[in-house]
């Protein structure tokens, strides 16, 4: 479970991003119990406090909830996850399009590239 961090950005933000992806991708299923803060931190080799901060952030976003005695769980609110997925996908697409524009490739052409190359998979 090695995860390379970018030391130039706050670690907790990178943790939030990583966990969001795990939730959205279904690696962490809705309603699934999340490992304890300490276990998670140890797996990713980060400071438990930083992990805690990341989980608090996810909780504020509603992606994670705490059951008093049992620990933390992934939300069962499918809408929320779906919306997040959409939002994240949009971001990726926008990023792709922007990058293509930087290369002097307009949106239409970019789409063509996408179809051509993406179709191969």
């Amino acid at each position: 479970m090695d995860f390379l961090f970018d030391n130039e950005r706050p670690i907790y933000i990178q943790l939030v991003e990583k966990l969001r992806i795990e939730i959205v991708s279904g690696k962490l299923r809705p309603g699934e119990r999340i490992l304890s803060v300490r276990e998670l931190a140890l797996n990713l080799k980060v400071n438990p406090n930083t992990m805690q901060k990341a989980l608090v952030e996810l909780e504020n976003e509603g992606l994670v909830y705490t059951e008093r005695t049992n620990g933390k769980f992934v939300t069962q609110n499918d809408n929320l996850i779906e919306n997040l997925k959409k939002k994240m996908a949009e971001e990726k697409v926008n990023k792709y399009l922007e990058d293509m524009l930087d290369l002097g490739i307009d949106n239409k052409e970019a789409l063509k590239y996408l179809k051509e190359i993406g179709g191969k998979f």
Partner: peptide, 12 residues
């Protein structure tokens, strides 16, 4: 540590 990274936009 994280605040410092945020503020300076660089690694420690």
């Amino acid at each position: 540590a994280d605040e410092l990274r945020n503020k300076e936009n660089a690694s420690i």
